[in-house]
């Protein structure tokens, strides 16, 4: 089957490029924020090449900017990276990759490529959506990071431009679409409260990692409440 054999496949390619361009512009902000947080241009670029998952990259840089140890930033980045593992679960049966192809494809496994792989009505188009979007985002994200990092270097003090608030807003924008249930909103509120309580008491970086504990408790709480309602249903 050729790349452009159907109108659907052509449309997937065009959409993939669109997603790549949109995400790339966001890469400019990552590059600028990374450099103004104290990373070198090459460190910012290395993050975009090797970590290649936006929320984790912003998290690492955010923790470092707040005065945390780079390793607690890395730990936060890994926790956020678990999301991609779940995307992998969803896509494994759809993409059916083996050996070397799976090893290469794994790096492209991010929010955008997953969404575009799940979108086509015809499942045989899933690999096209995945690889086209993943590669477009990879190329443009890395170019944009370099541009942003070079520009960030020329800017000087990040606070003058409100870039510290931009990082907070970036996290809020990533969080926003996920707050679709009361349970998730309560979890978010509890994580905020715990983080603020811990800020004066612990080293920078730890208040964020502590949020994993909140997530575990919230997942357990949900389980007991569903169990209880199941029991009361079976009794009644």
């Amino acid at each position: 089957m050729s790349l452009l054999s159907t109108p659907q496949r052509r449309e997937i390619l065009i959409d993939s490029l669109g997603v790549g361009v949109a995400t790339g512009t966001y890469g400019v902000s990552f590059g600028a924020v990374a450099v103004t947080s104290g990373l070198s241009v090459w460190q910012a670029c290395a993050l975009s090449i090797f970590v290649f998952t936006g929320a984790s990259q912003f998290a690492l840089v955010g923790v470092v900017a707040a005065g945390g140890a780079p390793m607690s930033g890395a730990a936060t980045a890994l926790m956020l990276g678990t999301r991609n593992t779940l995307y992998g679960f969803k896509l494994a049966s759809l993409l059916r990759l083996r050996g070397i192809r799976r090893i290469g494809a794994a790096q492209l496994l991010i929010d955008e490529s997953t969404a575009m792989a799940l979108k086509p009505a015809d499942p045989t188009d899933a690999p096209l959506g995945f690889f086209a979007t993943g590669s477009a985002v990879f190329v443009l994200w890395n170019l944009a990071t370099l541009v942003g990092a070079l520009a960030g270097n020329a800017l000087g003090d990040p606070a003058t431009y409100g870039l510290d608030a931009a990082v907070a807003a970036a996290f809020l924008a990533l969080l926003w679409p996920q707050l679709d249930t009361v349970h998730k909103r309560l979890t978010a509120a509890a994580a905020v409260a715990l983080a603020l309580i811990l800020v004066p008491l612990t080293r920078p970086g730890l208040p964020v990692i502590a949020a994993v504990g909140v997530a575990v408790l919230a997942a357990l709480a949900r389980r007991t409440s569903t169990l209880r309602s199941a029991q009361s249903r079976s009794r009644g």
Partner: peptide, 22 residues
């Protein structure tokens, strides 16, 4: 897996907006 990103991102918003070091 659903809740980990929610909790982490919420904590990151709070720390980034409302704290300066400790």
């Amino acid at each position: 897996a659903d809740l980990i990103p929610v909790a982490l991102l919420a904590a990151l918003v709070a720390v980034q907006a409302l704290s300066t070091r400790q």
